[in-house]
């Protein structure tokens, strides 16, 4: 068996299995915490929802009666648009734009590359709609640019530097490697075979590292943000 056959055969399956098993393991590990937090937070959510109802109603009444009678309804689009500047996007427009773009492309673009879809088709019998080669190249290039933005931000902004550890750079490298090597292999920069091997290997490394490293925020994000609704509640409260 050649090196190519090993890394594109059994190793792909192993990394997918490790990814799925690791994800399930991590969710099960967190289950007691989810249970404990949801029951505890339910109490908070009731009180905060009630508080929101009463205070919002009161505030609106007082405001509209006394001061801003001539202003449009507080729930109107104009009000919501004005509140945008207090949102995370309003505070850090560039970073939020880059992060959103980066995360969406990171998750969805690998499924839309023609080469990957041919492999999916032959291995599983299913495939996703593919993008043209030029468009995939542009998307890959955008991801690399986003990674560069993160790197420059980590290296130059003092606030980010203050909590950056070496693991952050390693994470960034692991995330960027499959795209960089894929880009180089596709355009035959350097040596095609070497780049293809590196592309497959780095993809596998990334997949395996998702449940076991800081990449776990991919999975835990859903739990901490949506299931625990901790932050969602606070955002609601902020609108009072």
């Amino acid at each position: 068996m050649s090196l190519y056959q090993i890394i594109s055969g059994p190793m792909v399956w192993t990394s997918f299995l490790l990814f799925i098993a690791g994800t399930i393991f991590q969710i099960i590990k967190l289950y007691p915490f989810i249970k404990q937090s949801t029951t505890r937070l339910n109490a908070i959510s009731y009180s905060s929802v009630n508080r929101e109802k009463t205070t919002t109603a009161n505030n609106k009444k007082i405001f509209t009666k006394k001061l801003f009678r001539h202003l449009p309804d507080f729930n109107s689009l104009i009000y919501k648009f004005a509140m945008l500047k207090y949102s995370l996007f309003g505070r850090y427009p560039l970073t939020i734009f880059v992060t959103t773009l980066f995360h969406l492309l990171l998750i969805f673009s690998p499924f839309m590359v023609l080469g990957h879809n041919i492999l999916f088709e032959s291995a599983l019998g299913v495939s996703f709609p593919s993008l043209s080669s030029e468009f995939s190249t542009i998307l890959t290039f955008i991801i690399i640019l986003c990674c560069l933005y993160f790197l420059i931000r980590r290296l130059t902004v003092p606030l980010v530097k203050s909590i950056t550890t070496s693991s952050d750079y390693i994470m960034l490298a692991i995330a960027a490697a499959p795209f960089l090597t894929g880009f180089m292999a596709h355009h035959q920069i350097f040596n095609y075979t070497v780049m293809l091997h590196l592309h497959i290997l780095s993809g596998e490394i990334m997949l395996i590292s998702i449940p076991f490293t800081k990449f776990i925020h991919m999975i835990y994000f859903i739990i901490t943000r949506v299931v625990l609704m901790n932050n969602g509640l606070r955002i609601k409260e902020l609108k009072i």
């Binding site: 967190l30 505070r91 850090y92 992060t99 909590i163 925020h217 901490t224």
Partner: peptide, 19 residues
């Protein structure tokens, strides 16, 4: 343990909480 470990693992060191 769960609260602390999860938070330390999930925190992406993005500094968006500063403001």
């Amino acid at each position: 343990k769960h609260q602390i470990a999860t938070a330390l693992k999930v925190c992406a060191h993005c500094t968006l909480c500063a403001d």
